[in-house]
Simulated scan of single mutants.
Amino acid sequence: MLGLLTADKIVQELEAHPNASRIKKLMVYACQNSWENDPNILHNYRLADLIQKLRSSHSTIEELAATLHRQVQTLNRQAEYLLVSEIVINQLGQLYQELEEVTQVVFIKPENLVTTSNTLSVFDDIAKEIEQDSHGIRMKKLIIYVCKNRWENDQNILDKFNLCELIREINQANPTLDELSAAFAKQVQTLNRHVEYTVVAQTIISKLEKLYRDSGESTGIKINKQAEYNQSLASRQDIKHQPISEGNQIKQIDDRFEVRMEIMKYTNPLRAKLLLFSVIYHPFKGRGQDWTILRSETLDDLVLKLFSTCPTFPELESKLYHTAKGIANPDESTQAASAIARSLKPFYTG
């Protein structure tokens, strides 16, 4: 039986989300296998019932993720609904975690919910940084495009948008740094000057990263638990981190954004994270502790951890493809392995 408090909390979170309408459409599609756009019909579906049905028909979060991703692949707006599917997975993951850790309160709040008294000043500071930047106008145009899904060149209209409010909106709509990066990547790829705006997007993300970093730093227990878990896994599996040096024929990864974008061109961020987790620690089983650690680490974190353990590119490829064949959804996992290998290959020499 679903924990009533947890289920109620999930319903509240999903109903309050900026993408609530899309979330409900996708959940109905996953439950009924038919797409529904009629608001009157959608209104008849209760989120609590949809959550109950999805949970009871999928014994693991991996199965649920696979179903949602399969459904998304049949839509003509895959990029938007891929992000929506990650929101649903992130929220319903609490119900699976609850079974494994009944006596613990372990759900990690989405990284973007900065609730300290300094929140407003953080948004203001970022807005001021952007406005003072030499590319401030381009940055504002791209932020509006990501938030409102419309491109605007009219300076009078641009001036009407409050940059601080746009930053708050974009932060709320993208619970993780990975989702934020995916949102910008999707929009940049539609522009005729996408090379220039890739650099603009990278600058914006570097400024917004503090919103996600600050919230993570405020939960000391999570970080300590993660360190203990990582240490125990490293000890048990004898993970040896190789120093990055000329002897190992590895270059330093200076541009994490480009690596992240390259990976997300060919696979979704959750699939990449599941594979990386399985390579670094152990095959992902969907247990509560696995999800706790997975949520606490960004795609960047996991990529760098794998990179530091593989002194040669053949070793990296071997670990990725071997692990992909042995975990759930091997075809999708192999695609993720290819995407990760492709993105990291330029950093190996010789």
Rank of each mutant, 00 (worst) to 15 (best):
V279T: 01
S21W: 11
Q104S: 10
S343T: 03
E80H: 07
T198I: 00
A20E: 12
G93K: 04
T292G: 11
I89Q: 03
Q132E: 12
Q231K: 14
H135P: 00
C147A: 15
N230R: 12
Q226R: 15
T323P: 03
A173P: 00
R271V: 08
T267D: 03
I239Q: 11
C310H: 02
I253W: 09
A328C: 04
K140V: 00
G326C: 05
K210E: 10
P283C: 04
K273M: 10
Y81Q: 02
Q226S: 13
I205Q: 06
Q187E: 15
M139W: 07
K225H: 12
K325V: 04
A16M: 13
V105W: 10
E258D: 08
K148S: 05
K128Y: 06
I205N: 02
L120V: 08
R236Q: 14
Q252L: 09
K273Y: 07
T323G: 01
D290Y: 06
D159R: 11
E209P: 00
T323K: 08
N268A: 01
L75D: 01
E62S: 14
E246N: 11
E98G: 01
A7H: 03
R138S: 12
Q78G: 05
C310Y: 00
S34K: 15
Y197P: 07
I61H: 07
E86P: 00
E101P: 00
H58D: 06
P269E: 07
V88M: 04
A337K: 01
T116N: 09
F257E: 05
K285W: 00
E258W: 02
K319L: 13
Q32E: 15
N329W: 04
D290R: 05
I327K: 05
K53E: 13
I143C: 09
N33S: 13
I61V: 15
E63D: 14
D214Y: 14
L270N: 04
V199M: 10
Q237N: 15
T334M: 13
K225I: 09
E98M: 09
T298E: 07
Q252I: 12
L275D: 01
A272L: 08
S215D: 11
T349M: 09
I280S: 00
V146W: 06
E100W: 14
T115K: 13
E196C: 01
L163I: 04
A183K: 01
R287T: 11
V11N: 03
E15N: 14
G216S: 08
F284H: 08
T190K: 15
F284M: 08
R70I: 06
L120N: 14
P314T: 06
F123Q: 04
N44V: 00
K9S: 15
K240E: 10
N44Y: 01
L95S: 03
M27L: 02
I263S: 05
V195F: 07
A324R: 00
T190H: 10
F257V: 01
Q78W: 03
I89K: 04
E165S: 10
Y29Q: 06
M261V: 15
H69T: 11
Q289P: 00
P110C: 06
T198Q: 14
E332R: 14
